[in-house]
Simulated assay, not measured.
Amino acid sequence: MNKEQYARLLKDIRDTHKQEDDVSAHIANYKDRFKYIYIYNDSIFKLLFGAPENESVTIDFFNAILERTGSDCIDNLTYTTTTKEEASSRHQQLERISIEIQHEDNKPYCDPLILHSIKHQVTNKYYGDSLWTQDFSHIELLLFDNFTNSKNYRHCEFFEHEEKQYSNLKQSLIFIEISKFLKNNYAYDQSHLAQWIRFIDSINNESPIETLKNSVFSQLEEKAKLCNFTKDFLVSEATKISIFPS
């Protein structure tokens, strides 16, 4: 289901719950109509990509976004919270990765992104520790067009001296304009990241692209089935939202 259909599902569940009607029957009706849940919902995304049991899926997604190949690939994760992960490469160089979904272009990005970097700098730092920092990548999945003057949908920014005499390559901000990619097709782009964006979109549109059995894509497809999400979870999601989009 898409974003609007998922919002309608939660709204109907909330209204049914408030009226003390049969929520289970209501959810069953949606499960008859839709096979998959909306992946880009914040809570759903955290469940699918922030759970240790889905580590192989998350690693593959991160490597696609970060354009890691060969010995530079991330090969394991240590989950520190539901929104941030610590990743290890085969060189055993510890780095931190955070990821967020931005649904609407209705708030500034500069301050939150700077805050992410500062929080990373001070995490696990104590008085007397070395001032050297770990590598840090913050990923923003944008569901709207942000860099309207650029034809690219992937953007990577580093902290850089204004005269380009120095760049801190340890700190990177990566923006993925998902809506731009989907609107402009990018048929020529067969990168792994492009495959990921197309596959998630196919799930959200109830028409999953055929994939190899036991691949990371088939694993995500199985996890994203609406039947996997319990009544308690859906009711909890519905009742914690006070305002739904029209």
Rank of each mutant, 00 (worst) to 15 (best):
Y153V: 11
E20Q: 09
E104Y: 14
I37E: 15
L142D: 05
Y166H: 11
N41Q: 15
E85T: 12
L169M: 00
N63L: 13
K18R: 14
K225P: 03
I39W: 02
K231Q: 07
F61N: 08
K84N: 13
I243T: 04
K225A: 08
S207V: 01
R154L: 13
I97W: 07
Y109W: 03
F34E: 05
Q219E: 10
Y153A: 05
E95S: 10
K180M: 09
T239Y: 03
C227F: 07
R90P: 01
S88K: 14
Q92T: 02
H161W: 12
K164Y: 08
K18H: 08
K225L: 09
K3S: 12
Q165Y: 14
A28H: 14
I27W: 15
D129Y: 01
R198T: 04
R14M: 14
S236D: 08
L94N: 06
N152V: 05
Q5A: 15
T211L: 04
S89F: 04
K119H: 15
S137C: 01
L94R: 14
F175M: 05
I13L: 12
N205L: 03
D72E: 13
Y30L: 01
Q165G: 15
E100D: 12
L10N: 13
I209F: 02
W132M: 12
F244E: 02
K18I: 15
F144L: 10
R154M: 10
A187S: 12
S242Y: 06
H91L: 00
D129I: 01
S88N: 11
D135T: 03
Q92G: 02
P112V: 12
L142G: 01
S167I: 10
N54I: 04
K84S: 09
D111C: 02
I118W: 11
K46F: 00
E67S: 15
P108S: 10
P112T: 01
L169R: 07
I197F: 04
I74F: 11
K107M: 13
A87D: 03
S246Y: 08
S215G: 07
D189G: 05
E86A: 02
Q134V: 06
E86T: 10
I59T: 09
N106V: 06
A194I: 04
E160H: 07
N54S: 10
Q171E: 15
T148E: 12
